[in-house]
Simulated assay, not measured.
Amino acid sequence: MPQQFTYRVPDEDIADLAARLGRMRLPDPAPGDPWAYGTSVDAVRALADYWRDGFDWRVEEARLNAFPQFRIARPDCDLHFLHVPGKGPAPMPLLLMHGWPGSVFEFLDLIPRLTDPARFGGDPADAFTVVAPSLPGYGLSFRPGQTRFGVEEIADILADLMSGTLGYPRFAVQGGDWGAIAAARMGAVHADRLIGLHVNMLFVRRDPAAFVDPTPEERVFIDELTHFLNEETGYQWIQGTRPQTLSFALTDSPVGLAAWILEKFRAWSDCGGDVESALSRDRMLANISFYWFTRAIGSSFYPYWFRRHRPWPIPDSGVTAPTGYAAFPREILKPPRSIADKTFTDIRRWTEMAKGGHFAAMEQPEALAEDVRAFFRELRR
């Protein structure tokens, strides 16, 4: 049975983090543009100084604890989730899933807009009851020595959480990053349980050579994909082949952890090179701190390992559940509809969003919430 709890990091762990940050040893800056070869030394120094002297973990911890939280001790993992009742005449159960390097902290501004739309000027008939888990192997869904998980197991575990443990025989799903591919997996193998799925990242096969006689729109995507595979996937190779080796550095060094994740916040958000224009330091550090205090960064790599060592996780029959897609302009990859239709066989909503990137729930919570509400509004009838 789920046990409700309040999360509190021990004072000594906070003191240990501050001490480590006080002893940080930085590399020399590479020549040329400060971001050309990875994370800027000056940017990391500024973020680490603020982490030590200005950031208040207890404030962010209290924001998390403002939502009802639960844990289940499963044989394969501890499963942590927020379970927030909706305020409306018939709230729809919604499974909300993050990815890497995200966490449930991504959703703290989004959840109220989904559970209580009237508070933000919306219609209470659009309310959801939100279940937002830490993905198995992430955050508080981690204990030392536990099983490691790929997206297939993550989809199965969370579908069981919804329809088995929590008693929602049919439910809605929303996800980004690994949460999006877990949603797609559910929409293929657990379609009978889904009311529908909404994603802000579309996963399609990533082999440029597989596209025959591409249209001009498809050619743009192929060029973007080729660049991404050549220049932006170093993190995937090491996380997908040597996750244990990388774990030592990022579990022991908070500055190393911050540098690893900061680069992705900057590269994947709609920030024009100034990451704090899209994500505040407090929002970034709440997420980074959650990885640090739970010591789950190593376990969080394993979806990459399994993705590299297993077949494509979507069956040839494709994703048959009704699908909605919010296409944020600075998402990592944005396949055109003609390609997406080959995997997602029942796309009912496709929205070109005005602003935002990969971390849509943090960058544009109101816009994302509105698109989720609009998509599922049609499926409530």
Rank of each mutant, 00 (worst) to 15 (best):
I157Y: 04
I157F: 00
V151E: 09
L194N: 08
G137K: 02
G176M: 00
R193T: 07
D160R: 13
D213R: 12
Q146G: 12
D213A: 13
A159F: 02
D207Y: 11
G164N: 14
L202R: 06
F171S: 03
I195R: 14
V212I: 14
I154Q: 14
P169W: 03
A155E: 06
P169F: 01
L161E: 08
T165L: 05
L194T: 10
S163T: 13
A159H: 13
F142S: 03
A159I: 02
Q174E: 10
V204M: 02
G164C: 03
Q146C: 13
D192A: 12
G137E: 04
L158E: 15
M201Q: 15
I154H: 05
D207G: 06
L140S: 00
R206I: 00
A155C: 00
M186Q: 14
L197V: 13
E152Q: 12
I181E: 08
A210N: 10
I154E: 11
V199P: 08
L194F: 01
R170V: 00
A155Q: 05
L161C: 02
R170C: 01
F211Y: 14
L140Y: 15
W178T: 12
F142Q: 07
V173D: 04
F149P: 09
R206S: 12
A159D: 14
G175S: 06
A182G: 05
D177N: 11
S163M: 04
R185D: 00
A191H: 14
R193H: 13
R143F: 00
A183E: 01
G176D: 05
Q146T: 09
A188C: 03
I195D: 12
A210P: 09
L158F: 09
W178I: 13
G164L: 03
I181S: 09
G167E: 01
V199C: 08
L194S: 03
F142R: 10
I181K: 09
N200I: 00
D160S: 12
A191L: 04
D156Q: 13
L158T: 15
R143N: 10
R185M: 04
D160Y: 09
H198Q: 08
A210G: 13
F171T: 07
A172S: 15
G175A: 06
G139M: 05
G145C: 07
L197F: 05
L194I: 06
W178R: 09
D213L: 04
A184S: 15
G167K: 12
V151H: 11
A210S: 15
R193A: 11
A155D: 02
R170E: 09
N200K: 05
A209M: 11
V199K: 02
P208I: 06
V189D: 11
A188G: 07
V204E: 04
A180E: 02
H198A: 04
Q146N: 14
E153Q: 15
R148T: 15
E153N: 10
V189H: 11
A183H: 09
A209S: 15
G187I: 02
V189S: 12
G187P: 10
R205Y: 00
S163N: 10
M162L: 03
G176P: 10
R148Y: 09
A191K: 11
L166I: 06
I181A: 05
I181Q: 09
G164R: 13
G187Y: 02
A182T: 15
D207W: 07
R205D: 12
Q174D: 03
A191S: 15
I154M: 14
G167N: 11
I195P: 00
Y168P: 07
G187W: 05
V199H: 02
A155Y: 01
A188T: 10
L166G: 02
E152W: 07
V173G: 12
A188Q: 06
